[in-house]
Design a protein around this nucleic acid. Structure first.
Lengths: 240, 240
DNA sequence: AAGTGGTCTAGACCACCGG
DNA sequence: CGGTGGTCTAGACCACTTA
């Protein structure tokens, strides 16, 4: 049972990273450098980097290089707290960019989620969210315009939660969500500076208000290594 | 913008699979066969298989080959329904093997979850669960023995939920869970016939009973492509 | 024993990013 | 423009599964 080259590289690099070796720049040496250091091929070296990547220890930006991964953010999809507040509670800094905000005709799929009809108009807000200056989440929000007249005239970099409350007196009620690991689709990849097809977490949520009306839904594409889900359920005790 | 070899292979194979090409055996031809069919290297061919794998279209069993992946199971960690019932509701068949069941001294981590002290004794039940004859979940259950005297004398291939009810008059109450994508640890890999280090979903749950006492916790290691999470939350409306 | 996937070598060219 | 990661070739040996 000889030690595999890949494993040796993984363990060595992991140890160096834990010791804070590349913490200064946050960046690893080039693949060619590393493959020489370990007297191996770039193929093999990349195999090792891939394993560390899948452990969430390092990550890459497309054609830019390899970087030390920051710790994961804890995320509760049942909580509708502001993204920024959530980040700050965990000692992180958040940033939001609005990539696009407009009226669109909803697809069949979105229509189903929002209890609307295919082709009806809804607001769509596409945003990119950063934690500690790293793009971690691309999210498309679909809002039923019946509940949010003139939404596009507001500042959408802010928390939608707060906007709902302050402008429309709408509060979140029940939530449902799905989550599945899937490769990052092409339209979300560039914003996250990630190769299309790399592993990601896809989350959809359907939100209701205090009157149990479906008010919006969203499609969230997370870097798979940027967060973990932590749900604390309330008093349900549903055991069918 | 030339079409990449890998992408061509992916699309071709994906199309063939959708047409039901390998449905009879459920199995793909060997890597050498395929690499010849596509006039390329095994390295490149494996890159393509890896992409299809990450899409959940195919999966591999360690050193055995590549197989067509069945559809994902919908899983709600907040529901404490019986695994078998859940599978059957979705038209699937489930199977459970008990790999190990014994008394152990709990680690600090488990002790914290169960509100016990490190080194105290608890029951640990390790089980392997199959869907449609494919091993998809390795789970370790830790039970506070104060609530479950003589647990080990019962048939543990059955639903623990039902055992709790029938033998101990204990019903599930609140639940909390965490979920994160991580590489499959070495101890869980063999049972799932998967290479250690391949991507997996790691879920932990902490369960309380009708009196809000913590009764058990578990560590679930899922094939990442075997399920997706679908949570329908109750009436909480928690907006901090 | 034959065939499989798992690992590895030693190169190469390309597209893109940054200075 | 040089250096980076992304892709690809044409082999090879090993450990394991399967028959």
């Amino acid at each position: 049972m000889k030690a595999l080259t890949v494993d040796v590289i993984c363990q060595t690099l992991a140890a160096r990273i834990r010791e804070g070796a590349f913490a200064a720049s946050g960046r690893l040496p080039s693949e060619r450098d590393l493959s020489e250091q370990f007297s191996t091929t770039r193929i093999t070296l990349r195999e090792a980097l891939g394993q560390l990547e899948s452990q969430g220890m390092i990550y890459r930006e497309l054609r830019r290089g390899w970087f030390i991964a920051p710790p994961r953010l804890a995320y509760d999809p049942l909580l509708r707290s502001h993204f920024h507040a959530m980040a700050e509670q965990q000692g992180r800094t958040a940033q939001t960019c609005v990539l696009d905000a407009r009226t669109v005709k909803v697809s069949r799929e979105v229509a189903e989620k929002l209890a609307m009809r295919e082709g009806e108009e809804a607001y769509r807000v596409c945003r990119l969210r950063h934690i500690d200056n790293r793009a971690v989440l691309y999210v498309e929000h679909y809002l039923n315009p019946a509940y949010f007249p003139d939404l596009l005239s507001f500042d959408l970099t802010r928390s939608l939660t707060r906007l709902y409350q302050q402008q429309y007196n709408i509060h979140y009620g029940r939530v449902g969500f799905t989550m599945l690991p899937m490769p990052l689709p092409k339209f979300a990849a560039p914003a996250l500076k990630v190769a299309a097809g790399s592993p990601a977490l896809f989350i959809t949520r359907i939100n209701r208000d205090q009157h149990d009306r479906i008010i919006d839904c969203d499609y969230e594409y997370w870097r798979y290594d940027a967060m973990y889900i932590a749900v604390e359920a309330g008093e349900e005790g549903r055991t069918p």
